[in-house]
Structure formats: structure tokens, C-alpha cells
Design a protein around this nucleic acid. Structure first.
Lengths: 343, 343
DNA sequence: TTGTAAGCGTTATCAT
DNA sequence: ATGATAACGCTTACAA
């Protein structure tokens, strides 16, 4: 005869129910929807649970209900400052809820993303947050089959899988470059690294603005697929100076590059903004402290994270947003590094 | 009569077993320990699983086995650059394994940490990574009751809960300050923010070095509990200049503060290092690019993360490290910002 | 509002 | 090396 498994000594719902003098299902209801119980039973279950130090078994709950309270989050990088702010928003928004975050790193690979998406599929998450809008067709198919709220973050575009929260990188770059043009800069360089989809769209915005002013010149554009860094900013700028010695401004795809350019200018005794204007992107905290203070495009990274999680949670409870696409916008923070050039 | 629950249409182990012509338990064994099957059954199960597109149900597995393959990670901050490197190490090391990471944010609160530890306790993680060595007694008790490998990271000290990987912040600061003294600086300020336990230990190291040289002066120490930032570096430095106008060097508890000091020096036309030496901590990437290049203490953050996960995984498989405490050390990166002062 | 009965999909235990 | 059986702790479906 099969002997019983060694009891773990763990307190189960049944024990709580027994002590409270109710059936297990009533105790179960207490933890999921206390309102559904009569006051007296509610109190009895509550004190029984406290007395025994009951802690629900999440695995059992997930198996029985065929659901989890996990929100999956796919992020392309853990190093990039941009994503640490997004993550903070995500974790903060989930903190006080019953949902927990399952974070995975796609490392800027849409194939890796696809693989991780399939992994999530097997776990039946309650919701999903994915970065960007450039998933593979297979990834899209998986997401569409997943039957849970999904928010794409960081940028917005047509045809959301489900919901979106972000802003237009194209427009943001357009506005930043237009500002430089308005400040009378003419030979405005573009410095880009990593060149992920969002950076590509910033390049498009740059191109649009330059072309509209009749200033577009391919020699003004310099990009590299390698990851971004401050030192890479200096290197790119040095190369740009060879490629187009007459540039009078640079639009950098992010603030690390911009800081690297500033340092390179200091090294070469190039005055900013008199001889070289600098504009960055993201408006990391240090931009306002630099000497001179560096112009940048402020983006609402924390809010992207927190809004995404709020949207997922609301959607799980059946509350869909009025619009599936939320534009969090951006703000050009104009500082001394891009003030009007010497006439 | 109780009707059967709506079948989810999901492929279960039983289906795979049926197609392969084996019992469910044999199929189960295939996924956990293929070697235990005869070659023929192994192949049959494998092809059956592939044919049906079987994906194991993690909740069922966790419930039946009373184990999970989750490694819990408790980190005090998601914004701090230091932790993004650690996290990258953690995620990279776990990537190719069967373990998944469950990350939570303690926000530098040991009470929050305690709460999250209890939450983890209910989830029976396969292992745990916690930040620092200053847990509450209750947290320690929970950890000791958890019966899974635990690694404390970021610093080392006596009396590990289980294992540790980090370095001595005290020694690192001592070495950095000693370097300044050796370079003939005498009025060396200490600038600190947030003042978490590791920063406190850097302050101790500073004190030890200054006292050993007979240079300790409380007016040289300036700290604030508010979070660290580049602008805070500038503010602290400005305050320090009022408090001790004769300082000739500053040891900053991190690189953000150091960069803020550099900017403030630029703003005030204070020459670095001629009139003011600067030393930071962590050696973030930008330190080498700054003008002048900034001295800092390089710490092995990525390795702390990856080593911690490797240690946890090995311990789960029964392979304990030769020593429970791993010292990853540090390296003083001496750059122009701290070169010998004007004699 | 509460309870009964039947799973949820997997693995531990024990036997062969 | 393989299998029969009984859990694992909870929730769904249905009934009262």
C-alpha cells in the first residue's frame, strides 16, 4: 500500500479552515475575495490564518486556477540607464499590487526575445510588457495567442499588439535638430551608437529636419553598431571631425555620447557652444550639471514603466484604457550647450 | 455528478507518454534525467514531445516536487549604476541554466528586505542572493530557516549566513585615501551621499587612513542621507568649500559625486588636480574619459553578480565552494585627477 | 453565502 | 529501467 508522502509540516489552507470551523473553499475565498464572506466567518478565517502563520502556496494556486499573478517584462538591456528608470517605474507600480514581475533580458536580440516569449507562454503570465515595436512575426503570433494584456513600451507606432505606451523618437529628434537649426547652426552632425530601432527612428527624425532645411549631407552622419558609452562619444566625435571638419553642432542619440563629445571638446579646447553645439537625448540627471549645461530631450522613462504596469493590471481586471496607445511625449530641455552660435 | 473541468487543450505529460507508449512517470524522468531511460524509450519520448509541442507545466512541477527552479535576488536599488552591472552578471550567469531569476527591490530598507524575504520563503526558491551583510535579526532567522543556498553580495565580512562574494569597502577606501596622502595631499575631504552600509564602511576606511597619517579632521567630512547624483556632488562640494576652504583633495563615495565635483571645479575655475584632487569610487566607464581623467576604485560588479549565481547553482547541485567567502578585490585606477599636487 | 466533489499536471514513493 | 498509485495544496464547477 502506498504510504503517504512525508508531510512538509507546512500549514495548509485545510488547517486554517479547520481551525476557523469552515470549509476549505470558504477559507480560500477569504484570501481572494474577503467581501464574499459573512463578517463572522471572515473574522474567524482571518484570525485562524494569523494564528497558524498561514502562507498560500503559489504553485498550488497556479496549478488549480490555471493562472499566475506574474507580469512578464522583456527588456533589451540591463546596463543602459534608460532602462533602469523604466524598471524602477515597473517595480514601483507592481510593489503594492498582488502581481510580481518576471524580468528577462533580450540583449537587443529579437530572436532571443522570441525565445523568451515562448518561455513566457508556457508560464501563463497574467500580463506582459515588451520593449519596442519591432518584434519578429513569430513573436507577434505568440503574443497574439497569449490571451493576456500586453503593453509595448518605449515607442509608439501603428498596429499595437494590444496596448502601447511611449513617445515618438522620430518627432523628438526632429524637434531637437530643428532647435539647433533655429539657433543658426548649419553643419549639424549626427552621432549614433548601437543603432537599435529607436535610435534608427531618431536618425530618421534628424534626416527629416535636416532635409526640410536643405541641410542634409551624408558626411554629417556617423554611426556605429557597437554599444554606447561615454568614451565612444569621444571617439565618434573625433572621427566626425575628420569626416566633416566644418561641423558646428552635434546631435547625439543619447547622453553618454553627448558627454563624451563634451569631454573631447574640452580636451581639444573647442568651446561649447561657441564653436560646437551639443544636444543629447534622454536628459539623464548629469546633463544639467555639466559645464556648460547640456541640452537634451527629456523622456518620461519612469512613467513609461509605471504606466505600462498600471495598464496591464487594469486590463487584467477588465478595465481597458480609452485609447490603446498612450503617448507620454517628450520635452526639449534647452541649455547652454545649444544656445545661438556666434553670428 | 461533477462534470469534468474544461480541458485547456494543453498538451500534458500524459499525452506525450501515451504517444511514446510509456508511462507518465517515465516521460517525466526523460525531462529531468534522460540518462535514466533506455536509449529506445528516450528517443520515443523525445520525438513524442517534439511532435506534440509539449511544454512542461512549471506550477504542477513545483507543486508535486515542492521545489522551484527560481533564484531570488534582493537588490536595494534599480537606478544605481552599480547594481545594473551586478544585475547583468546575475542575468547572464542564469541565462543558459535552467534557473530563472526573481528580482525584487528593497529600496535600501532592511524592513522591506525582511518582508520580501518572507515572501520568498513561501515560494521555496532554489537559492537566494541578498545584498550586503546588514540584515535584521529576523531576516537572518528567515534565511537560516530557508534551507537553500544563499549568497550575500557586494561586501564581505565575518559570519556569513551561508556564502559571500564581495570585497572590503573599508580597505578600498583606505587604499584610495592613502594614495592621495602619498601624492602629498593633506586636507582631503570626504563626500558621501545615501550613506548605506557600504558607504559607511568607505567612510571608516577614509577615517582610518586619515587618522593613521594624523590628518583626520571632522570638518573634512560631509555626508547627506539623500540619494546620490551628479548634481548632489556639486552641491556637497560647494558646501565643503565653505566648511573647509583649505581642502586640497576630495574622496567621493562614488563616481557620480566625483563627476559633480569635477563640474563644480570647472564652474569655479578650480584646476584639477593642481588645486583640487578628485578620487571617485566604482570606476564607472566615464571616469577614464573625463577631463582630466578621474581616479577611481575599480570594483568587479559584473563578476559579483555572475559569481554569486554560479555559487548558488553549484551549491544547489551539492558542490560547495572551497571557501564560503569569495573576495573579488578591487583595483585603484590612478589617473590624472589625483596626481601629485603642486609642491 | 457556503459547501461538495473533482480535478489542475506533475513527481515521490515504493515495488518489480 | 520501468510502472502503479497516491499525493502536492489549491480552486473550479456545481449545488444548496
Amino acid at each position: 500500500m502506498g504510504r503517504t508522502r512525508a508531510k512538509s509540516g507546512k500549514i495548509r489552507l485545510t488547517e486554517v479552515a479547520k481551525l476557523a470551523g469552515v470549509s476549505p473553499i470558504t477559507a480560500s475565498r477569504f484570501f481572494r475575495n474577503p467581501e464574499a464572506l459573512s463578517i463572522s466567518k471572515r473574522e474567524r478565517v482571518e484570525s485562524a490564518a494569523r494564528e497558524l502563520g498561514y502562507v498560500p502556496d503559489l504553485a498550488a494556486r497556479a496549478l488549480a486556477s490555471q493562472r499566475t499573478e506574474v507580469i512578464g517584462v522583456l527588456i533589451p538591456s540591463l546596463t543602459n540607464n534608460v532602462f533602469s528608470d523604466v524598471l524602477r517605474g515597473i517595480y514601483d507600480a507592481s510593489q503594492s499590487s498582488r502581481y510580481s514581475i518576471q524580468l528577462v533580458n533580450t540583449r537587443y536580440s529579437i530572436l532571443q526575445e522570441e525565445k523568451l516569449l515562448r518561455l513566457f507562454q508556457a508560464q501563463r503570465p497574467a500580463g506582459l510588457v515588451v520593449t519596442g515595436i519591432n518584434q519578429t512575426p513569430q513573436s507577434r503570433a505568440v503574443m497574439e495567442a497569449m490571451n493576456c494584456p500586453i503593453v509595448q513600451i518605449m515607442e509608439i507606432g501603428p498596429d499595437p499588439v494590444d496596448m502601447m505606451v511611449g513617445f515618438s523618437h522620430n518627432e523628438a529628434a526632429f524637434e531637437a535638430v530643428s532647435h539647433l537649426i533655429a539657433q543658426n547652426y548649419r553643419r549639424i552632425g549626427f552621432l549614433g551608437a548601437r543603432m537599435d530601432p529607436r535610435v534608427q527612428r531618431r536618425l530618421e527624425g534628424y534626416r527629416d529636419a535636416m532635409a526640410a532645411a536643405g541641410l542634409l549631407d551624408p558626411r554629417l552622419i556617423l554611426t556605429t553598431p557597437v554599444p554606447t558609452s561615454v568614451s565612444m562619444g569621444g571617439t565618434l566625435f573625433a572621427d566626425m571631425l575628420i569626416q566633416a571638419p566644418d561641423i558646428d553642432a552635434v546631435f547625439c542619440v543619447n547622453d553618454d555620447i553627448a558627454l563624451g563629445v563634451l569631454f573631447e571638446c574640452q580636451r581639444r579646447q573647442i568651446s561649447v557652444p561657441e564653436d560646437m553645439a551639443i544636444v543629447g537625448f534622454n536628459d539623464l540627471e548629469f546633463m544639467a550639471s555639466a559645464v556648460p549645461a547640456l541640452t537634451s530631450v527629456r523622456t518620461n522613462r519612469y512613467e513609461m514603466g509605471s504606466t505600462a504596469i498600471s495598464m496591464v493590471m487594469s486590463a487584467i481586471e477588465g478595465k481597458r484604457p480609452s485609447s490603446p496607445v498612450v503617448d507620454l511625449g517628450f520635452e526639449l530641455m534647452i541649455r547652454r550647450s545649444s544656445l545661438a552660435r556666434r553670428q
